[in-house]
Computed example of a mutant assay.
Amino acid sequence: MPDLTFGGLVSKLRSIPGMKTVTEKAALLYAVFEDEDTHKWVKAAIVAALVYLINPADAVPDFIPGAGYGDDVAVLLAALGTIKAYIESHHHDRAKEILNKL
């Protein structure tokens, strides 16, 4: 069972060397998620995307070189596209703070 806490997300992001796109998108999603003003359906979409990222048993296993994170990136981008109207500048600032902690 994947660790679905903030610590679990940070641990997963630290384990993705050289995957700046994945870490930036995941941090932005988390920043929107933790905002109290974010609508529940938006949070549900974010949780689904982040669970997919954290879960080691996804469509393309992460250990496959060159392809392992392709499906994860697609899911993160789809989630961001779905919620883009709800992403504000302070979410980008918070995502940068999260990335600095990595």
Rank of each mutant, 00 (worst) to 15 (best):
A49N: 12
A49H: 12
A49S: 15
A49F: 12
L50M: 07
V51K: 11
V51Q: 12
V51F: 02
V51C: 06
L53I: 05
L53M: 01
I54E: 04
I54S: 03
I54N: 00
N55D: 15
N55G: 01
P56H: 05
P56V: 01
A57Q: 08
D58E: 06
D58C: 04
A59F: 09
V60A: 03
V60W: 02
P61D: 05
D62K: 10
F63A: 05
F63L: 07
F63W: 13
P65E: 09
P65A: 10
G66Q: 09
A67F: 15
A67W: 15
G68M: 08
G68K: 08
G70L: 11
D71S: 08
D71T: 03
D71F: 02
D71C: 01
D72G: 05
V73D: 08
A74M: 14
V75I: 13
L76H: 07
L76S: 09
L76A: 09
L77N: 14
A78Q: 13
A78T: 11
A78D: 14
A78G: 14
A79N: 12
L80A: 13
T82Q: 14
I83F: 04
I83Y: 08
A85P: 00
A85R: 14
Y86V: 00
Y86D: 09
Y86W: 11
Y86K: 06
I87D: 02
I87C: 02
I87S: 02
I87V: 15
